[in-house]
Design a protein around this nucleic acid. Sequence first.
RNA 1: GCGGGCGUGGCGGAAUGGUAGACGCCGGGGACUUAAAAUCCCCUGUCCUUUGAGACGUGCGGGUUCGAGUCCCGCCGCCCGCACCA
Length: 837
Amino acid sequence: MTAERFDPSVADGRWQRAWDEARCFEADSASDKPKSYVLEMFPYPSGRIHIGHVRNYTMGDVLARYHTMRGREVLHPMGWDAFGMPAENAAMEKGVHPGGWTYDNIATMKGQLKQLGFALDWSREFATCDPEYYGHEQALFIDLYENGLVYRKESEVNWDPVDMTVLANEQVIDGKGWRSGADVEKRKLNQWFLKITQFAEDLLEGLDTLKDWPQKVRLMQENWIGKSQGLEFAFDLSNGEKLPVYTTRPDTIFGASFVAVAADHPIAQSLDSKAAHDFIALCKKGGTTAAELETAEKLGFDTGITARHPFTGAELPLYIANFVLMDYGTGAIMAVPGHDQRDFEFAAKYGLPIPRVVAPSVDEAGKPFAGEAEAGEGVLVNSDFLDGMSVEEAKAEVITRAESGGWGKGTTVWRLRDWGVSRQRYWGTPIPFIHCDTCGVVPVPRDQLPMKLPEDVSFEQPGNPLLRHPTWKHTECPKCGGKAERETDTLDTFVNSSWYFLRFASQPTDKPFDAAEVAQWMPVDQYIGGIEHAILHLLYARFWTRALAQCGKLEVKEPFASLFTQGMVTHETYSRKDGPREVYYTPAEVDRTGEGATLKADGQPVQIGKVIKMSKSKKNVVDPEDIIRDYGADAVRWFMLSDSPPERDLPWSEAGIEGCGRFVQRLWRLFGKFEDGASGEDKDLARKTHQTIAAVAEDIEALAFNKAVARIYELTSAAEKAKPSADRNFAIRSLLLMASPMMPHLAEEGWAAMGGEGLIAEADWPKVDPAMLVDDEVTIAVQHKGKLRDTLTAPKDASKEDLEALALASEKVQRSIDGAEIRKVIVVPGRLVNIVT
RNA sequence: GCGGGCGUGGCGGAAUGGUAGACGCCGGGGACUUAAAAUCCCCUGUCCUUUGAGACGUGCGGGUUCGAGUCCCGCCGCCCGCACCA
């Protein structure tokens, strides 16, 4: 070996260039090896890589490199989720063009990713703002339109009157726009929708097939889709109208004591008394935050109208109630106070009857309520022909009678809504449609795609630059040739990320992707990203896959076979009170002493806060580029994999990264002990090596990187202590190979120094000899009444009788037994002996 | 309210129902050195006038078992998602 120390500042760049030159990470669609598609959620080019990206991509990289070593053809691509608001905000704040800003950021961030030595196939890189990409997206959107999966509908949006734009719900804070601070208005706009609800059942059922997704994510999607089954039926109203209601508890129908509609229900809207209008206005004022809803009082307005009960004929009062939602079910309910908490509160407040129709047993039909509704199981009481039935039986019976009587039917209601994709924004995929007064909505002809964004736009005024661009929207109708206008809305950025994994797999120029080539790579074998995308992105991508399949473009069922959601990188915060304001400092500005922390600038103490997710606002961040410079890419990668299980949060620590830096050097010194021609055996070390290779492989496949790391530490210690031998050379060589997915630069450097053939990035994973996985001798625990008294060494295949005899021969055990009668001896071969007295 | 997850040393965390605390970090002691850095070695759950074949110990209380961090029942605490969804 040559150098004393491994110098990442030289080695990292050297090997990164070597990999590029050898093009060893480019996936070959023509390969006949088994494929492996490893994908991490592509980043938004916000400016710089943050530590969360580093953790995410390191995990994916270890898998990609490992699978390559196991003889798979690996697709591990990278690109940029490049449309979105921040680029427009930068344009408004700094007067730069969103495109220029975005591509500059991409250049910076690509350079940073390169510094980490990720085994990425950069030949497939693209940004979603590349006209080529969004042009194909426009074509797919038209495909969906032609297959009836796209429609336009007038719908209510949050409108910021100052920025003149639509806001997402998350951008409305306390009723005000998050940027402008202006009071947000409700406006009705014609918007584009994707028919995701058409796939509600399939999206729900598909979840059952996703065995390798976290249960948590599947449950979140299940709740989001929100399937519920019940009865829809209509009440005859005293004003002659019919009022459809939906209930999941048709069994409790005899317990209905009033009927209620939402404030924006047509019946409520049609009332012409001032009192009714005032009440409706009051309902609209109510806040929608969780806390407000929690405490909000149930309010109602008696319309004076009554509804006839379908079985008893009783006339039930019809209220407008603030807790009834217009956009779920029919916007109207039959209220059963005894068995629904909201109805209970309402009835208690307005003095309405609270009949019991479900009881623990038939004898308890008169049992009073204990101040709250009983929503649980039981038997039906006070319910005519339902009496004595279980809840399930009664539900079925009522639905049957409603259907045969022709006044109602069993229905399924979904919480899932169609996906509104219109955004009144510049920096997105232009929606490829033209509005013609004569022909209506007409798709842009495919030979005119991509329909590009105009470059000459200004952000000096608020609102959508496409709308006020002097020429862009004016065009001719492709059908009649008359004057027409382009759609000025752009697509939600979630559309861009709903099919990018297909484009990574196949990139023809004349179409979005080639179905056959996509079929070769899809589904993604391992998808890795943050839990924040558990619902929207992952659901939309699943929907697009189905939608494209329905259009005949694709034969993939689920896009992501296995999903892994990694934890966040966290760090404590440092702050000081400055009047009412909390001023935060970065870890780099602070000296962390044993107990406290002081500000480097003035030596005065700062407050140490909780360990929380790294965020710019709390300044508890470390810049990946700084730590790569200080410790090298491998130490940073190693830290990302050590200690914390990947799904949990990883607390960043200076001491931790220093430890990783030390280990890099330690391994390097160990590689230096590789002696060409060393001979002789070291059976124990050889066994340990084989066991480690098998265990590390298992751990990596289970994404238990922290455990794989621990095993590499153990074998390193053992190899360090061993004397030179052929087996020690084998241990060192194996360590090099096992560490190579995690610390590829160090591994290449060691491989070259050791005279390894080619690049270690293209080497095979070390082979395991199954015979070497079992030790000749094992340590047996000896217990007396379940308590450990002694340990002894025995041959691995010692018989039960031999083990028992050995255990009873132990002096320590005999002293513990102290002459007591032995009632039983349990022997687990290879493990333990338990003597029961 | 509904749904889910998690509680193990000073910290991050290991542990097919079978020797709890692997491995890393912090801390302590020592070696090497003129000195420092680097490196190496040892110790490091708690308790004890019993230093032991000792007692206790995986949030708390029960249970199953020869044996429970692990399985079951009941609590407590923390975290996350959804939420007036009929």
